[in-house]
Structure formats: C-alpha cells, structure tokens
Amino acid sequence: MNELTTLERRAMSGISTPSGKMLIVAADQRNGMKAVMNDAPAGPESVTAEQLYDAKADLVRYLGNAAPAILLDPEVALPGVAEDGTLARETSLVIGMDASGFETVDGLKYTRFVEGMSPRRVRDLGGDVAKMLWYMRPDKQGADSRVADEIRDLVKACADEGLLLIVEILTYRLEGESETDYAAAFPGLVAGAAKLSVECGAKVLKLQFPGSAEACAAVTTAAAGVPWAVLSAGVDHATFIGQVKTAVANGAGGAMAGRSLWKDSLAVSATRRQELLNANSLPRLRELEAALGGTQA
C-alpha cells in the first residue's frame, strides 16, 4: 500500500464523510456540462463562458456545499467561486488538472494538462486536493509506458508540494475492437489499470464501475490497500446508487458523482436551476451518502 503522509491524510479526511468514505460532487466538466444546458437557443455550442460559470456557481452554492468536497476546473469555475465566497469554507476543493479532450498516438489515447497547471498552481487556486485523468489500456501499456511515466511524475510532484493527488483512470475501446470483446475485457482492464496506477505510486484512485460484485472485489485486490472511488460515468442516479452499494460492499472507498446528480437540474433555464438543484439534486446527494454508509436517506 502507498502510505499517505500526514498532510495527505488531512486532505483525505476533508473529502470524506464522517464514516470515512470519499464523497465528491464532480463539476469540472466543461464540454459535457454545456451539452446538458439547453437555455441557449442554438444548442450547447452557444452556451457562453458566463453562462457556464453561473451554472457551476449554482452547483457549488446549492449542491457542492452540502457535500464534503466538490471537484472543479481551473478554466471556468476557478478562481471565481473561491474568491467571491460561493464555495463554503468547510467544503474541500478538488481541482481537476486535465484539459478537455484527448490526443491519439498509435491508437492509444492521451490526456493533456490544462495550460499552466501544476501542483503549485492547484495550491495557488485554493485547492486542497488535485485530480488528474489518464486514459489507459493496461493490456497494451505497462510500467515502461508513457502513461506510467506521467503518473509517476505527477505523483512525485504532488508529494513534493504536500498535495494529495486523485488518479482517475478511464479504460476505452480500441479502434477495430468489437463492443463484445471490449465488454468481455472491461472488468480486467479496470483491475489492471488500478494495479498499474498503484505500482506507479497512486495513493487514491477514481475508477469506472467494473460491472459486478466479483469485479469490484478484484479491483480492491488489485489496488492493494489504496482507496478507490467509483465514478458515475453518466449513468442515471438509480443505476449509480446500485453500483455504489455493490462497489462499497466489495471494498470501494467512496463515490464521485457528476451528471447522475445534476444533469436534469442544468438542462433548464437559469431561473429554474436553484429550484431543481434543491428539489432533485440535493436529495440524490443525501441518498448517495446513505449508500456509502454515512447517513439515512
């Protein structure tokens, strides 16, 4: 197990429920969030930066502040929501370092940092924890791969800054790979990604739901004591609650939820947003906390 330092333990406590399970509202999406906002007549591409900021600020104000932590981006939401007092003092701030999109090299996907992002910049923006996304195919990439080198480098840079890093891994279907073959390989890919990430020094993982109780147990074994949180990956809330219960029962250490909480609360006019975040999203957050073993729904 990759042991947490004292500073990292403090940060881990800040993103966790009283029962010790990670619970983070994910609101770092940019293009994905635009895609669910329909208050602009011409569609998502016409959502302005100001409209996107306002939506993110409402997510912080009416949802994120009710959670232990919220994940935000350094391009739209920050530093604004930290500087203007929207982000509650008691809510931990997780900052996503990854830029939107990816590049493909020799059939493999690679993410990029937001320009100018570093562990020091995360601190300067008021972040308590950093998060970085990598795409991975552990059946094609090993300890000597580019993605492994990138994880090792950032783990070390964050450790030097005294900053807890959440390593998010997404597996994906290769060009020419059938959906059937990928589905069959998927549980093993998630477990393999966890194993390789931990070997590269990861201390906290954010992973896809691998599909079953048995697969979750295999991921927990592969993580070798490193806590992992399951991400919502765009599924509906009821589905995600079931996944979280299964994952936690088989060793997962928490959940990070985005669209499953707030998707239908943003796909409205700005004037309706507060009402729907309170009526729909906030009860879902409470139900998610209960699924983690924190409170009663």
Rank of each mutant, 00 (worst) to 15 (best):
V204G: 08
V204I: 12
V204W: 06
V204Q: 15
L205M: 04
L205Q: 03
L205V: 04
L205W: 02
L205F: 03
L205S: 00
K206P: 00
K206S: 06
K206V: 07
L207M: 01
L207E: 06
Q208D: 08
Q208M: 11
F209M: 05
F209H: 15
P210K: 00
P210E: 01
G211A: 13
G211L: 05
S212M: 00
S212H: 03
S212D: 07
A213V: 05
A213L: 03
A213N: 01
A213D: 14
A213T: 06
E214M: 11
E214T: 11
E214S: 11
A215S: 03
C216G: 02
C216R: 11
A217T: 14
A217V: 02
A217W: 07
A217H: 02
A218C: 13
A218W: 04
A218N: 04
A218T: 15
V219A: 13
V219N: 02
V219G: 10
V219L: 05
T220P: 13
T220Q: 10
T220G: 11
T220E: 12
T220N: 08
T221I: 08
T221Y: 12
T221S: 09
T221R: 10
T221G: 09
T221A: 13
A222W: 02
A222F: 02
A223N: 04
A223T: 03
A223W: 01
A224G: 14
A224N: 14
A224I: 08
A224L: 10
V226A: 01
V226W: 00
P227K: 00
P227E: 01
P227F: 08
P227Q: 14
P227L: 07
P227D: 01
W228H: 13
W228S: 07
W228L: 02
W228E: 07
A229S: 06
A229K: 08
A229L: 12
A229M: 15
A229N: 03
V230I: 12
V230H: 09
L231Q: 03
L231M: 14
L231R: 02
S232P: 04
S232T: 10
A233L: 13
G234F: 07
G234Y: 02
G234Q: 07
G234D: 08
G234C: 05
G234T: 00
V235A: 10
V235L: 14
V235Q: 09
V235I: 12
D236E: 11
H237F: 11
H237G: 13
H237D: 11
H237W: 15
H237M: 11
H237E: 12
A238N: 09
A238V: 13
T239C: 06
T239L: 09
T239S: 09
F240K: 08
F240T: 00
F240Q: 10
